[in-house]
Design a protein around this nucleic acid. Structure first.
Lengths: 147, 147
DNA sequence: AATGTTTGATTGATATGCCAAACTTTTCAT
DNA sequence: ATGAAAAGTTTGGCATATCAATCAAACATT
C-alpha cells in the first residue's frame, strides 16, 4: 500500500467490530452465554445496531450462532479478541506506569488505539515493559520519567 | 461519558478529516497554495470525495476558501493540524527510538493513532522522551520535577 | 380466554466517507 | 473568440455504524 494514511481504513477490525467481539467474550466469561440483546446491553447500543453489526461479523466468520441464536466466537474471532485485549493492556500499563497518565485518560487512550497497534509494536512494547520491571528491582538504575 | 469505548466516535477529528487538514498545511508549505484538486491528488482520492469532505470542514470553520477557491486553514484548523503533527512525531520517535520498531511500521502506527492520543498523554510522552535524552547525555540522571 | 407487558430481533432512516461518472465552470492557448 | 484542458460540483452507488420504530413471541395478570 502506497498511502500510509489509508491503512487506517484497511484495518482488519474496526473499533466497533473489536468491541462487539470483546463483548461476546466477556459475556460468555461472565454468564456463560451471549445473545444479540446481551451484546447490545453490554455496549449500550440498541438491539437493532447490534443485530446489524453482528450479522456482518457472522458473515466474516468471526462469530458463530447456534440453533437457538446464542453467539460465540470462532477460532479466528477468539484470536482477534485475545490480540486486542493484550494490546489494550500493554498500552494501558505503559501509559499509567511509565508515563504517569491518569487512570481515566489512559483507559480512554488505550481503548481508542487497542485495535490499531501493530503486532510488531505490541511485541516491542511488551519487551520494554519487562525490561523496566527488571530495572525497578535493581533500585540504582535508570529513572525513566518524572511523574 | 459512561461508555469508554464510545469515545472513539466522539473524537473531535476523524482520521479522514485530520488528513485533509494536514494535506492543506503541507501543500501550502510546499508550494504556497492548496485547491480541491491538490488535496485530492495529495491524498490519492477523487476530486469528488475531496470536494464533499472539504465542504464539511469548511462548514465547521476549520478551512477557509478565498474568492479564487484557494484553501487555507482557519486558526482552529491550524491548531488542530499542529496538535496532530506533534502527536504523530512524538509517537513515531517513541516507537523507533525507545522501542526499536521499524521505520515503516512506526510510520503506520503513528499515522493511525495521531488524531486519537489525548493532550495529557502527548504531554507526558514528550516529557518522557526529554528525560530519556537527558539520561543519555548525563548518566547521573536528575529527573526534573513534573508539572 | 383476553389483555397487557416484557423481551428479542428486524427493518427503515440518517450520517460519514469512499468511488465513478456526468456535468458545469474556469482557464488558457491558439 | 473559440475550443480543449483543467478544476470543481453533483449524483448515484456501496459499506459502515448508529438509532427509532416496528414486529413477533414469550410471559404475566386478571
Amino acid at each position: 500500500m502506497l498511502d500510509v494514511w489509508k491503512q487506517f481504513e484497511e484495518n482488519n477490525l474496526t473499533h466497533s467490530a473489536a468491541h462487539h467481539i470483546l463483548a461476546i467474550q466477556e459475556l460468555r466469561d461472565q454468564r456463560g452465554y451471549a445473545r444479540v440483546t446481551d451484546v447490545a446491553r453490554h455496549l449500550n447500543i440498541t438491539t437493532g445496531s447490534a443485530s446489524t453489526n453482528l450479522k456482518s461479523l457472522k458473515s466474516k466468520g468471526l462469530i458463530i450462532e447456534d440453533e437457538n441464536r446464542f453467539l460465540q466466537l470462532s477460532p479466528e474471532g477468539q484470536a482477534l479478541a485475545k490480540a486486542v485485549v493484550q494490546r489494550k493492556q500493554l498500552f494501558f500499563t505503559f501509559l499509567t506506569e511509565t508515563l504517569g497518565v491518569s487512570h481515566d485518560q489512559a483507559e480512554i487512550d488505550a481503548c481508542k488505539t487497542e485495535h490499531l497497534i501493530s503486532a510488531e509494536t505490541a511485541r516491542k512494547l511488551e519487551k520494554f515493559l519487562n525490561n523496566k520491571d527488571n530495572n525497578h528491582k535493581d533500585s540504582s538504575a535508570h529513572p525513566k520519567v518524572a511523574a
